[in-house]
Design a protein around this nucleic acid. Structure first.
Length: 803
RNA sequence: GCGGGUGUGGUGGAAUUGGCAGACACGUUGGAUUUAGGUUCCAAUGGGCGACCGUGCAGGUUCGAGUCCUGUCACCCGCACCA
């Protein structure tokens, strides 16, 4: 018979669905296993091979765990709010909901064509009112607990479109759409106080099994630092609060720097001798993105505020104050004391602007460069701190500052609060009403979901408010509190909102009373294994941990952390290691690959392509190798005519070895080497003869990767039920060992030969066998003849040191 | 500039974590079967005539280094100059 993958794959996808083979029942007696992959944003271009990599890998893990008898939850859904859909809708005058619906249809059929073992009865969509009702509900709870608040924040403002732009829409400081300059402008925004959870988000990383580089990136992003907050007086009367991690160097502070946006700068403006210069610099800074400020770091810029001086609180010295864009308004207090002797950036700046450089920790040469690596140095030029170690000085100065009431110890985080408003149409409306009498009033829970109104146009308004602001019918409402006339909040939530809790909804997708039932979350939570891209490490992953901790605090979920384990995949690049992109025309569409070679080949190749955690490049030719492997398995099955139920002695060892290898490799994300072992097994069985018991095991081991062909051959061999849900083969450790091993023989560390000996042979016999090898003996003779030392690595290698 | 990564044949990548570098594939070459082949099978395939040389580059530790240490270069991802 011919291997007709198209017919076979359609047949089994249909059967799996008809039999609800992958449905997961909440509350099963079996051990639960919740495998999660990041749900896709259903863009117009459809599924990308980049999606297929983590999805296929996690599918193979889910399938294996299911075969091992676990109750597996492996769900799929769509993160469908977002900018591209909205922009497409604006351009083509189609409702974003319609665009979304069409895109989801495409995605669903593409996912189904790949044969993933999702429980399709649990599919979710973040734009479904039944779903976002609960996104809004969570926001209300946060508002009630004081975690949602309004604040002025800088936004990207297109001077021509007169609207707020996402960072993504700003290209080289210009609007992506119209090319006009983009400036930074203050606008009132809804914020979520993630910083209140900073310490817990940091501490609880110790409790979870995340790959190290994810933990590290989150740690550095949260960025806890300890230091002091210190109040500097100024000659104009106002105090300047600064944060420093090095209060011990306070005597070395020879100038101060404020961020250009600092409130005191505007306050002092009229009294400054160089107000014009200062204002020009402020405008210049406003035109730069934070990122650009960073890139231009090498050449420090700034302006001295003439007419005001700061006063160093420990020695009373008057020091100049600058504004410079290397100080950010969003970190610390937006003001620093500069210690050029012991900070690189301060040193560069001081040299350029002619500020004093004072050494306060001995050990370097501050005339040459800042001495920063100075933890072991001794304090000098620092009054009462002189002679102390850095550590002692830190303690002493904080005591001194606290006593005098001019400073205190302070923990500071890099992490800043989450800007939660978007002036956009295609997002969850924020369920808040503004009442002239009652102020800001949350909607009542029973009035959720608050739906999006129908609008004519999705374009933002030219005063920077959301398109919703134009819908007066919708905006004008009554106050839930006093019943008087009031106006709705017109900002919507960011795309991150819906994805911050979706894993909970999969546990109980149809519940209209709660976001998730206690039974469901107690049974399924936490997610056992969550895989996703590194690009989501600091935003999505942190946001969802934050929301989960909040839900834990209000008693909705029973665990502090949402995900027990987190892994991350590498990117799929185009041929030759170039990034896939539309403009390069090297984008691979999984649907095309399926049409040409079948889903099993596509799945096998995407697993075989390389180390899951590293980037890998697509190769059209290499796909063929995987198709050949499918053909080989098919051909092998055609040779099996017996009904043996035990392995033959000649194949026993390799079968047990392969079961062991594949079992271990799947759970350590090494499907590539598992497949290499299966290819070897297949070749071995083809040339050595294969009985039905052996074929059965091969099919089961291959099934997580290539499930369709395995179920087909399973049926053809007359086995019961589905290979996809059969019991995972077990191996016998004792049968994984070969009787004989080949050991490498080195003379003085260089490979000179090999010997075949019985496994686990004692060292002396191994050395004798090694010396007996003709080539080895010759090299011993040549190098001096006397063996002075021997090193034996069991079953691996002998090294003879000869003099 | 900061944070996190990655560098191995003609190509994708293996290497039990300090123990035979190049498993398994792709490609190439030769052969067999075939009317034909995106069929199947067999053989060869890091470089060098060789002693030997080979894991981005330069050192180091070790009986032994792709793996550990120091320095350095290149590339990729993220970013909010984090005081």
């Amino acid at each position: 018979m011919k291997y007709d993958f198209t017919a076979i794959e359609a047949k089994w996808q249909k059967r799996w669905e008809e039999n609800k083979l992958f449905r997961s029942e909440t509350g099963d007696d079996k051990e639960k296993f919740y495998a999660l992959i990041e749900f896709p944003y259903p863009s117009g271009v459809g599924l990308h091979v980049g999606h297929a990599r983590p999805y296929t890998t996690m599918d193979s893990i889910a399938r294996k765990h299911r075969m091992q008898g676990q109750n597996v939850l492996f769900p799929m859904g769509y993160d469908a709010f977002g900018l591209p859909t909205e922009n497409y809708a604006i351009k083509n005058h189609i409702h974003p909901a319609v665009v979304t619906e069409n895109n989801i249809k495409t995605f669903r059929s593409q996912l189904q064509a790949l044969g993933y073992s999702f429980d399709w009865d649990r599919e979710i969509d973040t734009t479904d009112p039944k779903y976002f009702k609960w996104t809004q509900w969570i926001f209300l709870q946060m508002y009630k607990k004081g975690l949602a608040y309004k604040s002025k924040m800088p936004v990207n403002w297109c001077t021509s479109c007169k609207c707020v732009l996402a960072n993504e829409e700003v290209v080289d400081n210009a609007c992506e759409r119209c090319g006009s300059p983009v400036i930074r402008k203050e606008q009132s925004q809804w914020m979520l106080a993630i910083t209140k959870y900073a310490q817990r988000l940091l501490d609880d990383l110790d409790e979870v099994d995340f790959i190290e580089r994810v933990k590290l990136q989150q740690k550095n992003w949260i960025g806890r630092s300890t230091g002091a907050q210190v109040r500097f007086a100024s000659t104009l009367g106002d105090d300047i609060m600064i944060f420093t991690t090095r209060p011990d160097t306070l005597f070395g502070a020879t100038y101060m720097v404020l961020s250009p946006e600092h409130a005191l700068v505007s306050k002092w403006m009229e009294q400054l001798e160089n107000a014009g210069e200062v204002q020009a610099y402020q405008a210049e800074a406003a035109a730069k993105s934070d990122f650009e400020r960073t890139e231009l770091a090498k050449d420090k810029t700034g302006v001295m505020l003439k007419g005001v001086k700061g006063i160093n609180p420990v020695n009373g010295k008057e020091i100049p104050i600058f504004i410079s864009d290397y100080v950010l308004s969003t970190y610390g207090t937006g003001a620093i004391m500069a210690v050029p002797g012991h900070d690189d950036r301060d040193w560069d700046f001081a040299r350029k602007f002619g500020c004093d450089i004072i050494e306060v920790v001995q050990g370097g040469n501050v005339e040459e460069a800042a001495f920063t690596d100075c933890d072991t140095g001794v304090m000098v030029n620092s009054g009462f701190l002189n002679g102390m170690s850095v550590e002692e000085a830190k303690k002493a100065i904080i005591e001194f500052l606290t006593e005098k009431g001019i400073g205190e110890a302070k923990v500071n985080f890099k992490l800043r609060d989450w800007v939660f408003s978007r002036q956009r149409y295609w997002g969850e409306p924020i369920p808040i009403v503004h009442c002239p009498k009652c102020g800001t009033v949350p909607l009542k829970e029973e009035d959720l979901p608050l739906l999006l109104p129908e609008v004519e146009s999705y374009e933002p308004t030219d005063d920077g408010s959301s398109p919703l602001a134009k819908i007066t019918d919708w905006v004008n409402t009554t106050c839930p509190c006093c019943g008087g006339a009031a106006k709705r909040e017109t900002d919507t939530m960011p795309q991150w909102a819906g994805s911050s809790w979706y894993f909970l909804r999969y546990m109980d997708p149809d519940n209209d009373q709660e976001l998730v039932s206690k039974d469901a979350v107690n049974y399924w939570g936490p997610v056992d294994w969550y895989n996703g891209g590194m690009e989501h490490t600091t935003l999505h992953l942190l946001y969802s941990r934050f929301w989960h901790k909040f839900l834990y605090d209000i008693g909705v979920v029973p665990t502090k952390e949402p995900y027990a384990k987190r892994t991350s995949h590498g990117m799929i690049l185009g041929e030759g290691g170039i990034k896939m992109s539309k403009s390069r025309g090297n984008v691979i569409n999984p649907t095309d690959v399926i049409a040409e070679y079948g889903a099993d080949t596509m799945r096998t190749y995407i697993i075989f392509i390389g180390d899951f955690e590293k980037a890998a490049s697509w190769s059209k030719d290499a796909v063929k190798g995987c198709k050949r492997f499918m053909d080989k398995v098919w051909n092998l099955a055609e040779t099996v005519k017996d009904h043996e139920t035990t392995y033959s002695p000649k194949n026993e060892t390799i079968i047990h070895k392969t079961i062991k290898k594949v079992s271990q490799d799947i759970d350590s994300l090494k499907g590539n080497t598992a497949l290499a072992a299966l290819m070897s097994l297949c070749t071995h069985l083809s040339s050595n003869g294969c009985n039905q018991a052996e074929l059965k095991t091969l099919l089961q081991l291959l099934s997580p990767f290539a499930p369709h062909i395995c179920d087909e051959l399973w049926e053809q061999q007359g086995f019961e039920g589905f290979c996809s849900v059969s019991s995972w083969p077990v191996y016998d450790e004792a049968k994984c060992k070969d009787a004989e091993v080949e050991m490498a023989v080195q003379v003085n560390g260089k490979l000179r030969g090999t010997v075949k000996v019985a496994a686990d042979l004692d060292n002396e016999s191994v050395i004798e066998a090694a010396k007996a090898d003709e080539k080895v003996a010759r090299f011993i003779e040549k190098t001096g003849g006397t063996i002075i030392k021997t090193i034996v690595v069991k079953n691996k290698l002998v090294n003879l040191i000869v003099k």
